[in-house]
Design a protein around this nucleic acid. Structure first.
Length: 373
DNA sequence: CACGCGTGGAA
DNA sequence: TTTCCAAGCGT
């Protein structure tokens, strides 16, 4: 047996075996019952992994239940109307995830006979499937010993192995993948990868980790040196740009509201919204002028703004919208049916049929509470 | 590589 | 209230 150092992490066979035993035993006794753990259906595993990207488990659970009920199989999703798919994702954020997912399952139907591929190269080639998700599907659905390195894994391993590389650097992930390749159980790669993440979620949390409850404590170099709270090293900055927005709830003669479908790329792609634009200036004249000008440009309609209907703030990961909301109407003798593509007149009770981002759901709430429509 | 891309929870 | 996120990926 090789009992000497066999890696850049100085992991000998004995350490690796203990690592696996402690981790897998703890996982077996403490893992949560989650809807995507009911079986190993690659499609369901895939959906869950996409939903869980940058999103909390508690948030995902109801979405996963509803989504898999609406689209039980890969084929159901592949052939579904994109609007229905976005509606099922409404409120979950990062909407390109689900459009990429649908693109990818179509690809699986066309190129892989409807069966999710099980090789790293093929699966990583699918839209929206990066290094983490590829490893997660391969290990969890197919039992293949590939690393699945997410934020949890980097946090947990940075502490246990005392790795001080900056985890905000993309290159650092590769280092952790090397570590996982040396540690991963070949008997149960699925449980091993999930256990690392589960430990990160339940014990080895970002702030004040529960080291006294941790099954890995005696194997943890971070704990041993009392430096677990300093890890992982994560540099980088958070700057949120503020944008002053003006939005309109604009009615036609039939009391219908004007809405717009956003472009297919960029922020909130393909989601619906009320006509809005960024403005410069301090006073209400600037807000009204910007809004009316935007509507004129886009639809060729003349809007008449009547009164302030409210104010809403909405914070994105990288942007803050400060939205002034105006109520008004479209004054046009022209044929109101001549709407440009991606614009629509809808009744209040029809709004629920369209996918709106949360920022504009707040406007819908204002309409239902305050406006007479 | 750096940045854009949502949302709601926790401290 | 402010900060930092939470099972990342595309460009």
């Amino acid at each position: 047996m090789n009992t000497t150092s066999n890696s850049i992490f100085s992991l000998n066979d004995s350490y690796v075996k203990q690592f696996q035993d402690h981790l897998l035993t703890w996982y077996d006794e403490n893992k949560r019952t989650l809807p995507w753990r009911e079986n190993q259906d690659p499609y369901r595993v895939w959906v869950s992994e996409i939903m869980l990207q940058q999103t909390r488990v508690d948030t995902v659970i109801p979405y996963f239940e509803r989504f898999t009920q609406l689209f039980p199989t890969l084929q159901d999703l592949a052939y579904a109307d994109e609007e229905k798919v976005l509606k099922a994702w409404e409120g979950l954020g990062y909407y390109s995830r689900v459009r990429n997912l649908q693109t990818a399952v179509k690809e699986v139907c066309e190129s892989y006979g409807g069966k999710v591929p099980n090789t790293p190269k093929e699966i990583a080639g699918l839209k929206g499937v990066g290094p983490y998700t590829a490893g997660a599907i391969l290990s969890i659905a197919y039992g293949i010993p590939e690393p699945a390195v997410d934020g949890n894994v980097m946090r947990v391993l940075s502490r246990i192995l005392l790795i001080e590389e900056d985890i905000s650097k993309p290159k650092t992930r590769v280092l952790f993948e090397k570590a996982v390749r040396e540690l991963i159980s070949h008997e149960d790669p699925s449980s091993f990868n999930q256990a690392l993440m589960e430990l990160g979620a339940l014990i080895c949390t970002p702030k004040s980790p529960a080291c006294l409850l941790c099954p890995m404590r005696e194997l943890c170099r971070g704990f041993e040196s009392g430096r677990q709270a300093e890890l992982p090293v994560k540099l980088g900055k958070t700057k949120v740009r503020k944008a002053k927005m003006t939005a309109g709830v604009l009615l036609n003669h039939d009391g219908e509201i004007l809405i717009h479908k956003r472009p297919s790329e960029g922020l909130l792609a393909n989601m619906w919204e009320f006509p809005n634009t960024e403005y410069v200036g301090e006073h209400k004249d600037a807000e009204i002028e910007a809004l009316v000008g935007y509507v004129q440009e886009q639809t060729n309609f003349g809007a008449v703004v009547e009164e302030k209907a409210g104010y809403i703030e909405h914070v994105f990961s990288h942007l803050k919208w400060e939205i002034q909301i105006w109520q008004g109407k479209i004054e046009s003798e022209d044929d109101l049916e001549q709407l440009p593509a991606d614009w629509k007149w809808v009744r209040v009770d029809e709004l629920e049929n369209y996918p709106f981002p949360v920022s504009h759901q707040k406007i819908i709430l204002l309409i239902k509470e305050a406006l007479i429509v």
